[in-house]
Amino acid sequence: MYDYCVIGGGIVGVATAHRIRATHPGSSVLLLEKAGRLAVHQTGHNSGVIHSGIYYEPGSLKARLCREGARRTVEFAAAHGIPYEVCGKLLVATDAAEHARMLALYERSVANGVEVDLLDAAELVRREPHVTGVGALFVPSTGIIDYTRVTAALADEFRSGGGEIVFGAEVTAVAESSDAVTVSGPAGSWRARRLVACAGLQADRVARLAGLRIPVRIVPFRGEYYRLPGDRKGLVRTLVYPVPDPELPFLGVHLSPTIDGELTVGPNAVLGLAREGYRKGSFDPRDAREVLGYRGFHRVAAAHVRTGLRELRNSLFKRGYLAECRRYCPELTLADLLPREAGIRAQAVAADGTLVHDFLIERTDRTVHVLNAPSPAATSALPIAEHIVASLNN
């Protein structure tokens, strides 16, 4: 009998197990991960950005935890010798409509307490000579890091403090009783007094195994990236993003320097027909059947037909993808877009077609389920873990 069991070896699950050990040092804590290593899915397939919290609804969990998470991530990296860089981010407006949205976003940044500089076209070009636009916001607190390394450092401290990690532990059954939760699968069975499920792409399925009647289903969206050739790595010094359209669910294609010296372009957002299939054309019958048969997805698709078709076109034809990048970096060419592995975003969608934007956590007497933790969950992982562990004690 363990005191606590955590399902999921991504950064949120590992940070939660780490936090439990830190706040309950005498407790026994088990972390289950179905893969053979940590950070296999969303944690290991993102752009490595330390987000500032500029976009999110004031007062939301995302807004609050992202600001705190950015500070805590940098502090943790500095204390553990993990490379990071606070390089800043530009959000570039390329026309009058985007400029108006940019000014609205500036007001939101003020409400969220995020430092932002408002730039005109001349100042934008002075800062980034290869980027063009009618204006931009510069967010100095945005940075870059490798979240796989952060996860590994958290796991090392967790294990050194007495925590246990079991790999190859797929969960196929969860049974809650009055005094314990039993978790089982092909690799074995485990009992714990409390369970926390941070299952990411499988979050809804694990919650249903535990008997929850949850109001959402995970819809996977593939985010396809390219990397630029070595001679283009110095093209920009900062992260360069388009100004997001609040009517659309994702942020758009951006230029992202990485902490290991690459310069990437992406991601787009196309429907994934395999929750854990990263190659183009990946297909899993169960995953496809669940998403295509879900009325919530039908309503999302109907509401965003033009956007969905554009994203699909850009996925199939590189010239369309390039056109998105050239809006703010016109000198890029087709030859600059080299293949890079895709990521998959676990997006919770309600039955009425609403995309859940904030972090979503549900609980029973002995279990806590993280049902929606998209970007900026990696940035926010440490304060998310504190939030989860505090709820275990209520």
Rank of each mutant, 00 (worst) to 15 (best):
I7D: 09
I7W: 05
G10W: 03
V12I: 07
A22K: 10
T23H: 03
S27F: 03
V29A: 03
L30R: 03
L32I: 00
G36I: 00
G36R: 07
A39N: 02
A39F: 03
A39E: 03
H41L: 01
G44L: 09
G44C: 05
G44T: 11
S47M: 03
I50L: 14
S60V: 00
S60T: 00
R71I: 13
E85A: 14
V86Y: 08
C87F: 00
C87N: 15
G88N: 13
L91M: 12
D95R: 04
A97R: 13
A97I: 06
M102P: 00
Y106T: 06
Y106V: 15
S109Q: 11
A111C: 13
G113Q: 09
G113F: 07
V116P: 02
D117M: 09
L118F: 13
L124F: 04
E128C: 12
V131A: 06
V131N: 15
G135E: 09
T148V: 14
V150N: 04
T151S: 07
L154F: 14
A155C: 05
F158K: 01
S160W: 08
G162F: 08
G163L: 01
G163Q: 03
E164I: 15
E164W: 07
A173M: 10
A173R: 15
V174Y: 07
G185Q: 13
G185T: 14
A192G: 09
R193E: 12
R194H: 12
R194D: 05
A197Y: 07
A199W: 14
G200C: 03
Q202N: 08
R205W: 14
V206I: 15
L209Q: 12
L209K: 05
A210Q: 08
L212M: 07
V219L: 01
V219M: 02
R222E: 04
R227I: 08
G230K: 11
K233I: 03
G234A: 14
L235Y: 10
L235W: 07
L235D: 13
T238L: 00
L239T: 14
L239S: 07
P244G: 04
D245C: 08
L248H: 12
D260H: 15
V265W: 04
G266A: 01
P267A: 05
P267G: 06
L271G: 01
G272W: 01
G272C: 00
L273H: 04
R275F: 02
Y278M: 02
K280V: 11
P285N: 00
R295D: 11
R295N: 08
V300P: 11
A303F: 11
H304K: 09
H304N: 14
V305D: 10
L312V: 09
N314Q: 07
N314A: 08
S315H: 13
L316W: 15
G320M: 02
E324G: 04
C329D: 07
E331H: 11
L337H: 09
L338H: 05
A342V: 00
A350T: 09
D352L: 01
G353P: 01
H357L: 13
L360W: 15
R363W: 10
R363S: 11
T364G: 15
R366P: 02
V370H: 03
N372G: 04
A373P: 07
P376H: 01
